[in-house]
Design a protein around this nucleic acid. Sequence first.
DNA 1: GCTTGATCCTCATGTTACCTGAGGATGCAC
DNA 2: GTGCATCCTCAGGTAACATGAGGATCAAGC
Lengths: 139, 139
Amino acid sequence: MAGMSIGQAAERSGCTVATVRHYEEEGLLKAIGRAPNGRRVYGWPDIHRLRFVRRCRDLGFSIDDVRMLLGATDATSPDCLAVRDMAVAHIDRLRVMRVEIDALEQSLSSLANTCNEACATGRSPVCTIVEDLGATASG
Amino acid sequence: MAGMSIGQAAERSGCTVATVRHYEEEGLLKAIGRAPNGRRVYGWPDIHRLRFVRRCRDLGFSIDDVRMLLGATDATSPDCLAVRDMAVAHIDRLRVMRVEIDALEQSLSSLANTCNEACATGRSPVCTIVEDLGATASG
DNA sequence: GCTTGATCCTCATGTTACCTGAGGATGCAC
DNA sequence: GTGCATCCTCAGGTAACATGAGGATCAAGC
C-alpha cells in the first residue's frame, strides 16, 4: 500500500493537505517522491513521520522543537538527555499555563455570575462585566 | 497629571510602547492628542482604557472581542447579555484548554520518567521519548 | 552652547503555523 | 465526454504584536 496521494496522507496522519505541504517545505519530511504526473507520493514511513510531527505539535512543541526531535531520531546517536530536558522544560511551561487558565476561569465565572444577578432579566444601564473588567468612563 | 508620554502610558498600563501604538491603530483608543512636536499625549482616561484592553487580552479575549466590549462601554445602552454570553463562551474554551493541558502534562511526564529510567545514566542507543512519541523508523 | 543618551516619530518588514484563493492541469466516474 | 474532485504552484492573508531603519527631539551635564 505504498504510494498514497497527499489527500490520503493528510487523512491518515490527521493533518490537512495544506499542513502536509507546509511541513514538507519546513524540511520536516524526508524527500517526498513524485509520480510522473508531478504529484507527491507518500509511503508509510512518511505517514508515521507526519503523525509524529502532528503529535508533537498537539503537545505544544514548536516546529523548531520538532525539527530538533527529528534530528535526534535521524542521528545515529540521539542526544537523549537534551530531548528529555526539552520535555521537562515544556512540562514547566504547561504548569504555568494551567495556573493562569485557572485564574482566568475564576475571574470570568465571577464576572458572569455578577452579570446574571444584575441584568439577566433584561438590560442593565451599565454592564457589570464591563464595569468589573475595569473600564472606567473614558469619554 | 494629564499629559503623559507614550512611554509613561505604556508603563502605567502594563503595555509596551509598540503595543500602545498597535492598539491605537487598531482603533481601540479614542483620539489620542498630540503635542506641538507631534508626540502623542495621554491622559488618565486613556490609561484606564489601555488597562482595560490589556486586562481583557490577558484574559484571553481577542482584539475583536475587546472592540466589542469597548463598543458596549461606549454605547449608551450596552448589550449586557451579549457581553455575558461572550464571557460564558470564553469560560467553555478555557475549560477545554485546561483538559488538554492536563493530558499533555501527563503524557510528557510519563515520557520524561521513562527516559530517566532508560538513559539518565548516559546515552541510550534509542531515545525513549522520541520512540514513545510515535516516531517509527522513516527511511 | 554642545554633546550625549534616552525617547519619540513613521514606515516597513519579521514572527508562527498555518489557511485561503487564483489559475490551471490531471484523474476518475458515469 | 463531461463533470467534479483532487492535485499543482505561487501569492497573499491571519493574529498580535516585535523589531529595525532612519531621523527628529528632549533633558541632563559640562
